[in-house]
Nucleic acid binder design. Structure first.
Length: 472
RNA sequence: GUCCCCAUCGUCUAGCGGUUAGGACACCGCCCUUUCACGGCGGUAACCGGGGUUCAAGUCCCCGUGGGGACGCCA
């Protein structure tokens, strides 16, 4: 049987980072076994589902690079099928109409809580034989009363829940629409899902779903999928990761300058490991990932580690690939790189100095645009009374250079130091500020080579004037 | 409250009865250095508590404690 997994988010917001992790696990498991990965949109709650959310999920999946083989499948397109299954359940006695009002149910729960019991439906209509014609009614699944449900969870191990803990859940609302626990069961069965991989906040739903699957076994496939419940991701306060912890939407990570594969790499290592390896290529992930090795304990999201992982990708990815991802940030920061040095060369010079693509984009502006102001701190620290003289000396030498490359530039800088009888520490920093406007840049020879001879000379000329006026 | 899950450095983890408890991030030193980084070397730092089982327990069992989750006509 071919392995089939699915990612089944509900479109009620952005694509969440926790969702991405379970999607990744599902995707990896499918890819590892040459199986199929489905994207299914669980939009049965029409009140809260939105088209924007659907688009956000798809955009997120595209950016992060988890390709699906089927879908997106919308549950709202399958209402006829769910109705059919619900009728069948009623017919075979595994579901029934319930006429209890919301008020009645609320009161019931409140009383149970007051009584220190777990709130659940008391089964009042279970044997009342309502036919749903007279009054408004919902449909409930008739859960077995006795016995245990055993889940052999691929991550958590064996979990046993007694049917006493479960109540008769609603599978169709009073308006006739099906609810999550019914649709997920029908879909996983119909679509041939072999491995249900999801967050462990669903563990409590699993025994109910297994009971329904068993009830449906007569008319649908009788084999059950395997289950794997991945633990939640926690914020640094130990609470479940949410908006108040910062970025939880996957697209926010793009905006902040992360590579999709770095985010994936980080998420993979959060709760899973393979020996001492930290960085995994896509191929290695597929080859090495094992559901069985996923840690059962929840883990805390750590942005600093994510930054480090991202840094590793900036340091090692081919410049051309970095350029592709950098483009979004260049557009975002309104930087046109057509008029200046080759972007790939600039990336090579800066890749050891940025942790994110956003930082990288922000740090290379001076190659492409003239700056109107010098960094105040830098001029204060490095521009002295001798500065005009130094810069003029450098400028004279640079202007005579016929071959503008790093090696020659370096030689001229040293020659200047000798001639002026100054150390590099006096000459270098001033030159850097003059040409880049800032106190930091790659080594000067490379920086100047990239900025270009003409631009460098213009900037030197400008800075001589500036330094004279200000420090003479 | 009830049920379910979980428990090794601050964080992510290795460990699957016998280890000087390993690695990574972060942090702190030192080195490299024209800036900022990168890099190199070194360091601080953990088995939640209590009972068992065993010659031997971080590892197995039980009970606490702590954290997380679920308890909707949400998914």
């Amino acid at each position: 049987m071919t392995v089939k997994t699915r990612f089944a988010p509900s479109p009620t917001g952005y694509l969440h980072i926790g969702g991405v992790r379970t999607a990744l696990y599902s995707w990896l498991h499918a890819r590892q076994y040459n199986g199929k990965f489905i994207l299914r949109i669980e939009d049965t709650d029409r009140e809260r589902s939105t088209q924007e959310s659907v688009e956000a999920i798809i955009e997120g999946m595209n950016w992060i690079g988890l390709g699906y083989d089927e879908g997106p499948i919308f549950q709202t397109d399958r209402f006829d099928r769910y109705a059919e299954v619900i009728s069948q359940l009623i017919e075979q006695g595994d579901a029934y109409h319930c006429v209890c009002s919301r008020e009645e149910l609320d009161a019931m729960r409140e009383a149970q809580r007051a009584n220190k019991e777990k709130p659940r439906y008391n089964g009042k209509c279970r044997d009342a034989k309502h036919n749903g014609a007279d009054v408004e009614s919902v449909i409930r699944f008739r859960n077995p009363v006795e016995g245990d449900v055993v889940i052999d969870d691929l991550i958590k191990g064996q979990i046993i829940i007694n049917n006493r803990e479960l109540d008769d859940l609603i599978i169709a609302r009073s308006d006739g629409t099906p609810t999550y626990n019914l649709t997920v069961v029908v879909d996983d069965l119909d679509m041939g899902v072999t491995h249900v991989i999801r967050g462990d906040d669903h563990i409590n739903n699993t025994p109910r779903q297994i009971n329904m699957m068993k009830a449906l076994g007569t008319i649908m496939r009788a084999d059950l999928p395997k289950f794997a419940h991945a633990p939640m991701i926690l914020g640094d306060d130990g609470k479940r990761l949410s908006k108040r912890h910062g970025a939880v939407s996957v697209m926010q990570y793009r905006d902040e300058g992360f590579f999709p594969q770095a985010l994936l790499n980080y998420l993979l290592r959060l709760g899973w490991s393979h020996e001492d390896q930290e960085i995994f290529s896509r191929e290695e992930m597929i080859e090495l990932f094992k559901l069985e090795n996923v840690n059962g304990a929840p883990s805390t999201f750590n942005t600093k580690k994510l930054l480090w992982v991202n840094e590793q990708y900036i340091k090692t990815l081919p410049a051309a690939e970095i350029a592709e991802h950098l483009q979004w940030h260049l557009d975002d920061q309104r930087l046109d790189v057509s008029n200046g040095p080759a972007l790939n060369d600039v990336i090579e010079a800066h890749r050891d100095r940025a942790k994110t693509l956003r930082e990288l984009a922000a740090s290379i502006r001076y190659y492409y645009e003239d700056f109107s102001e010098y960094d105040e701190k830098a001029t204060k620290k490095h521009f002295k009374t001798a500065t005009p003289n130094i810069l003029q000396n450098l400028s004279d030498k640079f202007s005579k250079l016929s071959d503008w490359n790093a090696e020659n530039i370096q030689a001229e800088i040293y020659a200047s130091c000798d001639e002026l009888e100054l150390g590099m520490g006096k000459v270098g920093p001033a030159l850097r500020v003059a040409v880049t406007g800032s106190g930091t840049s790659p080594s000067l020879d490379i920086t100047l080579a990239l900025v270009g001879q003409q631009r460098s000379l213009q900037r030197l000329e400008k800075s001589v004037a500036f330094a004279k006026q200000k420090y003479a």
